[in-house]
């Protein structure tokens, strides 16, 4: 006998595989991470029992200066990196949009950095930042900007910004792609009308282009802020958090607690904090998106 299914039942049937996967490999894990974060789980304690410690791990996290340092660098990384990549991205998008003859070529080229995996990007930039034979030092020396090769990843302040520079290279490409699509979606008539109305260069950009692109700008910033906040591969591959802990971001820091210190409780607490901040950021963006999107 054939069982008759309603449309809704079909829907649930179709959703089963996805939900199985995400329940087992996403919701169960995040719950366990939370559960561990309120327990003491050090090293080999796994079989000696894991005492419940309440929010002790969180209390540790909020009082530990290294955690604050790491949070501080993460936020600095996010803010500077997203700002830089936004402006570079919009510049590239505008250039892609206006150099008519090279549009196709430029579009193909701009997309390349985006496709480079973050860990590969880390390796590439580590080579370019090499203390002795790094090409960036070499070019700067040749240009007379510095007198001797710099150890970009060796000194704290320099390392912090070198990581950001490397990140911007890849992510500005993503920005450019998104913003270009946003630019291209503005009806040509609107531009033409603005031109005839007497709006020139910057005025047109400021009063027509930017506001018309606002929705996609917000979406792009949301994606990028969230991604930047989760950054792991680049820092792991480029500096490993060093020198000292100056470029340690929240993800690499938790990873150390897990796999180097085997302190799962503290690592989990850090991971959960990271997640919560992310949720907060995205809620903030979604709110402002909703407000701005009203004119649609």
């Amino acid at each position: 006998m054939k069982i008759k299914l309603t449309e809704a039942r079909y829907a649930y049937l179709f959703l089963i595989p996805t939900f199985l996967v995400i329940i087992i490999f996403a919701f169960f894990p995040i719950t366990s991470t939370f559960w561990w974060s309120v327990h003491e789980l050090k090293d080999k304690i796994l079989w000696t029992g894991m005492p419940f410690v309440g929010f002790e791990n969180y209390a540790w996290a909020f009082t530990n200066s290294q955690v604050w340092g790491s949070l501080g660098y993460t936020l600095y990384f996010v803010a500077l990196s997203v700002t830089l990549e936004f402006w570079i991205g919009i510049g590239m998008a505008l250039a892609m949009f206006h150099t008519f003859k090279l549009k196709g070529v430029l579009r193909a080229i701009v997309i390349v950095p985006w496709a480079v995996p973050a860990i590969i990007q880390a390796s590439m930039w580590r080579w370019m930042f090499h203390p002795n034979v790094g090409i960036i030092s070499d070019i700067l020396v040749k240009l007379g900007v510095i007198s001797a090769p710099l150890n970009f990843l060796g000194a704290s302040l320099l390392a912090m910004h070198s990581v950001i520079l490397a990140d911007v290279w890849k992510t500005s490409s993503f920005m450019a792609i998104l913003l270009f699509a946003g630019l291209a979606a503005i009806p040509q008539d609107i531009y033409d009308s603005a031109k005839v109305d007497g709006a020139r260069g910057w005025f047109r950009f400021r009063h027509i282009t930017l506001p018309m692109m606002l929705p996609i700008i917000l979406v792009a910033l949301l994606f990028r802020t969230m991604d930047a906040f989760r950054v792991f591969d680049l820092v792991y591959g480029l500096t490993g958090g060093g020198p000292g802990t100056t470029t340690e971001v929240l993800s690499t820091f938790s990873y150390k607690y897990y796999f180097s210190y085997h302190n799962f409780g503290k690592g989990s607490a850090l991971a959960i904090v990271t997640f919560l901040i992310l949720v907060a950021i995205s809620l903030f963006y979604i709110r402002s998106l909703q407000k701005r999107l009203k004119f649609k």
Partner: peptide
């Protein structure tokens, strides 16, 4: 489903490792 996309890998790495 979209919330899963927001989760950082770092919150899931350890449990998934164990699973």
């Amino acid at each position: 489903i979209l919330v899963v996309g927001m989760m950082p890998s770092i919150v899931m790495i350890l449990p998934i490792f164990l699973i």
